[in-house]
Design a protein around this nucleic acid. Structure first.
Lengths: 204, 204, 204, 204
DNA sequence: AATGAATGAGACTTCATTCAT
DNA sequence: CATGAATGAAGTCTCATTCAT
């Protein structure tokens, strides 16, 4: 077990170094030597833990997804989510400001997705899981209120786009609007839309 | 004049080839040799027209911005815009489906912005110009209706994020929702929000 | 004849431009495009006058030799030279300060001589001609005075080295000693040596 | 320690190969591939030890200066120098014949100095250090003999020029005069001048 | 004679990967 | 496990030269 710990500690060192560098300069501009220097490990040492540069990249991707999951899903308990439809939005807006480097990495991977089907697949799978969870929550919520749950694909897509847009906005445009204010504003935009939808769409 | 035409024709050839390749594989994965092959020109010939690989990239960026401008701004006449607040949205959604490679390039440049201040500056300047135009239109429109025009910074940022989100969604997630449907849905989301804002915020 | 003049004027333009650039940056660092720009001529135009980059270089070499000849030989009339053994030294020291770029070019060609036998041959031939002329003058002078003229090869070589050294010193070390002072100093060094030689070496 | 040795051994291999080639063909005509072939190392291996082609060049420059220092300074013990003013001249003339490639490199660097201030600075610093040492020796020597030491700047410059001239003469003109003979001749030229100077210039 | 666009060989440099120690 | 020297492929860029107009 000590072994395993050392292994995973080393891996973490490397992944963190890679993340930091990639968020600053981009992945293509980050060399293995850079990562080694920052992680304080030799080139050969790195090779023991990661077969490839790609191997590191996927580890970074997993870590990014994991961190995003923690922020958006794990931090919002089921009960909260059910009682307050804005809880997710709150968690999202909180994270958006406190962890810009995370969103830079997401933007980076999203861009890479264009020519890397493997990355695309992984990312889409994650977003799909978010979406499913969201849907499940809605259904449960609506069930409780005895209202039929209906959410069209277009609606789901649109909501996802809005989420991505906020990420892109903060990662790329460096929006100065503070997260709390943005949260209020986004609530004004989204809540009526969501409620209007569930109320008015008996058939989609 | 023949000379000038030849110059610009060649430049166009090269820029188009570069765009096509970059939209497919990404810029870093596109070699100068690839561009030359696709543009049917020799390496040295390319050098005559572009100093650098970067020089090509900026030409591509300008072309992308130009195309986006045409789609979003030029195609919506002033009159239309004033009479129909959804005209812009319409133009946007139209373009989103017909020209995915354009949005891939934008996603690419957005991602590059993270570590290339020069690209970031150019892109932000363009988005700011879009935003200004939008604001001007709103003011004019509201003036006519004798209603005070108020749009908070947060609102403007949010709307810009939504736009970026749609781009990112289509460029990266390959959304299958057809553009017309998405337009309808986006209208449901945005129009109430916009009108609510202008109605309810006498002072921001 | 007009034709010939135009030709030679163009050639001069080009050679002068090439000299200026080579004296500043060195020959290898001077591109044909640079020369064209400075000579205000197109690449193709240059080709009409010079077959090669080498062709230009040899034209420069000839011009340099010509200028040096003018300074060292032509400017010292035969009579002067015979009456005053320091006349040559004077001409030399004069030129050394007034035309440093000339000496830079000589240093450049001297250095190139190492790997370019053709340049070496041309330069050595010129220096040999200088040497011969010097010797002839000495003989004539000595004959008049009824003293046997003897100058060993070693002596000739040494004197040539001193000359080269002054060139190198000014071209490379940027000596600050004014030419007049250097002339005085060199006279103190050389004149006794020359006279001592001719007096004391009845047989070499 | 093994590591360090390997590093410096490899560096030496590379520097020596570079020197040999540069002395033959000139630096600009020496490609990195050539150096690699001669040093029996791969391109990437070379990069490990030298960042740049320039980096190699400066290592060569340092080596050249080091070798020159050894020949001219280290080989002449202080005692010798003080007792025999010709010792330095002797060392110099000895070296001039036995190590022509060294002088070719010096000529090369001198020529490069024209357009490379960094090289110029390094070389001038070395020659200045030679000059200082020379001056210090003279002062000590003269002190012992109770004669005032006076050496004008012009005199120092002239002597340095003579030294450079001998280098240039052998490096460039391929003088055939054997070193011993040249030494005798140079002594005839210089010794009277030096002694005359120190005797006759109570105030300069 | 003149123009300058086009060519393509070749140089420099970077870097992911391998491997002996 | 770890080190870092070594490899060599691949990419970018420069530039002398050619050639159609």
């Amino acid at each position: 077990m000590g072994r395993i710990n050392i292994r995973s500690i080393r891996r973490q060192q490397i992944v963190h170094a890679a993340e930091e560098l990639a968020a600053q300069r981009g992945w293509a501009e980050t060399t293995i030597a850079d990562i080694c220097k920052k992680a304080d490990i030799s080139v050969g040492g790195l090779t023991h833990h990661f077969k490839d540069k790609d191997d590191i990249m996927f580890a970074v991707l997993e870590d990014v997804i994991h961190r995003l999951h923690d922020r958006l899903v794990a931090s919002v308990s089921k009960e909260e989510a059910q009682q307050n439809p804005g809880a997710f939005l709150h968690a999202f807006c909180q994270s958006i400001e406190s962890d810009r480097s995370l969103y830079r990495l997401i933007l980076h991977f999203a861009s890479s997705s264009i020519h890397r089907p493997d990355i695309k697949q992984r990312l889409k799978a994650f977003f799909a899981s978010l979406h499913q969870r969201d849907e499940a929550q809605c259904q449960e919520q609506e069930k409780r209120k005895d209202k039929p749950y209906i959410r069209s694909q277009a609606m789901a897509d649109l909501l996802q786009c809005v989420g991505l847009g906020l990420i892109l906005g903060y990662a790329f445009l460096d929006l100065q609007t503070p997260a709390e204010q943005m949260e209020v504003e986004a609530a004004k935009l989204l809540l009526p839309y969501i409620q209007y939808q569930s109320a008015s769409s008996p058939q989609s």
